[in-house]
Design a protein around this nucleic acid. Structure first.
Lengths: 235, 235
DNA sequence: CATGTTCAGATCCTATAGGGCTGGTACGGA
DNA sequence: TCCGTACCAGCCCTATAGGATCTGAACATG
């Protein structure tokens, strides 16, 4: 019972030191980062007590963080055995993911198109710009910003539908998450093509024609699938 | 530290008393039941310590159960304030849910149709049979079995796609969950119609024509939306 | 009467202790 | 050498204690 007083850096006189942090949130994000960076390899066990020691906290917030994480599909829990990092994506998993994206994302594009505002359009343009300017070095870490912009673009479209359930459905695909892991070992070779397709989706949205937007998104997803399957490892 | 010895009713000589239960799982299901039955009204606060006292457990498993529940949309968490039951469905929420179902469920029907086996078909037939025979009394509790069969029918189709992500997307809609609460105050008046439509979906699946199956499912969802909006309260 | 203060209870959050189980290792006997 | 047993460390799971904050009511003061 010594740390709580250290969390809020004292000295801020009043009005919430920006935001009192809950330790479980911090643990959650820390674990998420480890998972996306590949520091936690698929199949590895995630010990509750162990990570508590590593992060220098008690097991209680770790339990809470893992309970939340489980619902994202990143880790799996076995009743009295603990948590394990979810296994790697197989080619079949990837095909299933693309099938699901093909069912959901064009709908999102159509709905988002119908209620597009200049402000929202600007956000999408920013995402595409970031996509173009993000470094694409050889190591995985250097793709981080690129992948983040990619994910942001798709998530923004989901959010711009204004439909909470479509957002939830998109999130269930692990939009933020699985994609990072998917390419963890593969490498990304289709950046140039993907950027052009994102631009095409953006252009289609700008025209205000929902069907065009849906078609552009569908084509993008199909092409991503095609390219990824082409140079996927045997696995 | 006295209860663990009571959980596994001693006397079973060996081989796991069917399954050692984890308290958090029990709390989870208990809370879920309270939420679906309406005992926990929308907007009510769910105190961690309080429910721990009610269920006669410690706060630790309650925290874990609530962390999982949050991801289903049944409860919302505010960082240092606690959990509250999610607010009631508005008419707009309902419209959004139906829009999302319309995007996802016909696809599920199409995919499920393609890989339908006799065994799976039998499961679906069982669900429709249960739907027909379930009691439909005036009180909410008496609709329990009916709603369970309804949900099971749709979930089976999602699972029969063999696509884990479509299952996840369907689950994100709160398939198991939101529907129970949705009608909590409204009452169900469309059982006869809905049963016929489920039968129609089942028939379409039996023909083995994926497009027929998708169309039947789309029509079902649209009609549910139409009927529910017709006799929905102002709210 | 209005307003500020104090105090008690409730609540969230975290740390710690300890029970029960499992898996592996060392050791002793056949 | 091989096998069984005892032991030990690590893990999951739960309970309990205690600090920090918030709420609301009782109370005091202008």
């Amino acid at each position: 019972m010594q740390r709580p007083s250290q969390i809020n850096s004292p000295g801020t006189r009043k009005g919430r030191p920006v935001s009192r942090q809950v330790l479980a949130d911090h643990v959650y994000e820390e674990l998420l980062e480890s998972l996306m960076d590949g520091r936690l390899e698929p199949g590895a066990t995630v010990s509750i007590d162990g990570t508590a020691r590593d992060l220098d906290v008690s097991p209680t917030p770790v339990r809470e963080a893992l309970a939340r994480l489980e619902h994202t599909g990143m880790v799996r829990r076995v009743a009295l055995k603990g948590y394990r990092v979810a296994p790697v994506f197989t080619r079949e998993d990837f095909a299933e993911l693309m099938e699901a994206r093909l069912a959901i994302e064009p709908v999102n594009a159509r709905l988002a198109c119908a209620r597009l505002t200049p402000e929202r359009l600007a956000q999408l343009e920013q995402a595409v710009t970031d996509l173009k300017t993000a470094p694409r070095g050889p190591s995985f870490a250097e793709y981080r910003d690129y992948l983040e912009a990619d994910e942001r673009f798709h998530r923004l479209i989901a959010e711009q539908t204004g439909n909470q359930f479509m957002v939830a459905a998109y999130a269930a695909l692990g939009g933020q998450v699985q994609r990072f892991r998917l390419f963890g070992g593969v490498g990304i070779t289709d950046a140039e093509n993907a950027i052009a397709e994102h631009q095409a989706v953006l252009d289609a949205l700008s025209t205000g024609d929902p069907e065009k937007a849906a078609a552009a998104m569908a084509e993008h997803v199909r092409k991503v699938r095609g390219r990824a399957i082409a140079d996927a490892p045997e696995s």
